[in-house]
Design a protein around this nucleic acid. Sequence first.
RNA 1: GCCGGAGUGGCGGAAUUGGUAGACGCGCACGACUCAAAAUCGUGUCUGCUUUGCAGGUGUGGGUUCGACUCCCACCUCCGGCACCA
Length: 827
Amino acid sequence: MSDKYPFKKIEKKWQKFWEEQGFFKTDLESDLKKFYCLMMFPYPSSALHVGHGRNYILGDAVARYKKMKGFNVLTPMGWDAFGLPAENQAIKRNIPPAEWTFSNIKKIKKQLSTWGICYDWDREVTSCKPEYYKWTQWLFLKLYKHGLAYKKKASVNWCPSCQTVLANEQVVSGRCERCNSEVEQRELEQWFFKVTDYAQRLLDDLKLLDNWPERVKIMQNNWIGKSKGCMIKFPVVDSDNILECFTTRADTLFGATYLVLAPGHSLIDELIFDSPDAEKIKDFVRKVKKEVYQGANIARNFREEIEKKGIFTGKFAVNPVNNEKIPIWVSNYVLSEYGTGAIMAVPAHDQRDFEFAKKYNLPIKIVIKPENKDLGVKDLNSAFEDEGIMINSGDFNGLKSKEGANKVAEFLENKSAGKKKIQYRLKDWLISRQRYWGAPIPIIYCDKCGIVPVPEKDLPVVLPETVEFKPTGESPLKDVKSFIEVKCPKCGGNAKRESDTMDTFVDSSWYFLRYISPNDDDKAFDKDLVNKWLPVDQYIGGVEHAILHLLYARFIVKVLYDMKFVDFKEPFEKLFTQGMVVKDGKKMSKSKGNVVDPADLIERYGADTVRLYTLFIGPPEKDAEWSDKAVEGAWRFLNRVWRLVRQVISDKYQVASKKNQQRDDANTRELKRKTHETIKNVTEDIERDFHFNTAIASIMELVNLTQSSKLKAERKVLKEAIETIVILLSPFVPHISEELWQKLGYKNSILTEKWPVYDKKALEKEEVEIAVQVNGKLRTTLKIPVDLTDKEIKKMVLDNEKIKKYVDDKEIKKFIVIPNKLVNVVV
RNA sequence: GCCGGAGUGGCGGAAUUGGUAGACGCGCACGACUCAAAAUCGUGUCUGCUUUGCAGGUGUGGGUUCGACUCCCACCUCCGGCACCA
């Protein structure tokens, strides 16, 4: 093993060196150009595997690269430390959530340092510490004060046997994951943030995010789900009630032959109270409500469609456009959470309505026909959902769908029977959690004064350290008297604290502001410095956060902007979403038992090898298949570099190269060109979405050429090649690069070295190889001097023996020249 | 079902605006060194064939083009997200 490089010694040495020198401590006041490089902060659940490693290795490489590019780089790290798993561990193993969390943080920090990943640890934030959540609570108060936090009833998953609220992920196929009892829905008063107020701006400002991946923007766009349409009032016959329905296709209103209510619709009871079938209908509603919920889960797992079921309420409504009496039904295919929870059904032009109408024998009326042909009910095997021309629609006949929809809406507006409306799919953000391990919501309930926010001066509302986790109740906080019982800040009377805590997404929607002044006890963040350092220049994280986290962070920043706390509208200038690391075709995860522990690999090959392989595995935005075997390749490469550099600077080599005076000018030129070509490629690959895989491949090519020309090329050029290799490699494999840099005789850390710039002149070639095609088929290649005229090239090509054979005496129809690349002779 | 992404050698993956498909690495084979092995170095490695060369080849079938992994149409498969969004 003596000829292998001693990574163990080297890596420890340089890790210590970087830390002692404080290379990653950032002076925020500096006038250098700033670069805020942010990783999504992790949930400290257990040790990291190579899949997590990919994230941090990528970010570290970016930070080091930017530093060498001359930026003042800020790379902080912290912990998204509140959450469910800590509580589960507490129940299962009787360890306080805090203890479990902090021991994990310690473990992970150590791991990161053995990978050579450097952060400005002076700025570490931990969301479960009172110093941090004090300001999460402050944020809540700000939203409350501005009317953006409010309470309303919402249903939760309830396990009747565990007597507890379940998160969605704890419900498996409609059953509690722990005790397998059937999960119920319960209505609770809960806190919400009004994200819907910001729906339009969250949508509009996506246009500002030029440096976000298109797919993330599309997903956010669909999530917000804007649709333009019309709210239509349907008066109920023999009643004062009016049913409102939202539609995007007002042009089909004449074809509305029935209405459908969601099982959760608030008017159902009122409609049916005098019906002889009232009990039957109520039964149906109860049954279907439960099924809708369970069905959603089952359908998700088995990708099946839910069977549509319905029942007639016995009541009718009036279609405002033609005064027809149409029946009102209740069915499971209408959602109570979207729109008004009631729809007008147009079976001829909506597939779901069509299926339902067929099943229950409801009338189907065609009111839209294709532009170039007629349409009859008999022709209809499925709904005709395309746009077309209005028919059977009174005065509106002949209008095109779009125009018709508009005209119908205007007609209804005039009659006060409807209104144009923009509808969003986005719902308000439910932030209440009936759990212990989260930031307490700073609210007090007083019998006299009602809901009283905790005064800012009394923050933080501290989470009690020791609580009992009884699997009996709601939040364990309810049983902690010293926490719950409190004096009302307004009247001084006896009052009670809110026992719910906040969703962890609240913690993570502003942490990137806290890094700027993590220890400030007077305010959440320093306004001036935050305005100087934000938006984040580069945000890096998993694509699984494409919607929720990123949307909430954008929302909170917009709220802070409106309150004039910050003067930017979007938190993240550039976003990079990483692919997963896959093993045996599956996502790497503990439960699947396919995790690769980086510790073993680091023990065998060192951190640099693991880093290099991780970056080389594939384009970072795509999923990648992990192969332990291929790690060898990275290890061999680093050893080759190690030997190459040491050989070239050794005395033995100096003598050999002097003796061997067979200088080769062509080889020298080639090596020089390759060196500069590599600088160009590597720089461009990094700038182009961090394509480290191809960057590393380029460096490998340069190493291969340097290896073969080490005795032939001029010494100066050889030295340049070697040093370039070491510098270009340094963001990826920092330890070995520092060591070799020192061996090359330099006293400074390679981190302080300038990133090289390629010399255009060195890239120039005298000769190029071009492809010669006849009729688009490659026939030969030719070496020709650069910048020949087309005429000269044509002559050369046609004089070529191989080409002559194909051209023969046929007529040349075309002669296409792509400069310095290819010619195509068309005969 | 809908939305988004992808499909290239035995494997991970290259090919930047349509211009020499398979860079770089893994694996494999052979050779050198060695008593031997490991390590290292060198050579070869898309497939087929009548092997100086020719033909085919980027999920399938069509199309546009002098020229298609790349653009257009239809379809198939896989991965991720969502749940009938009126």
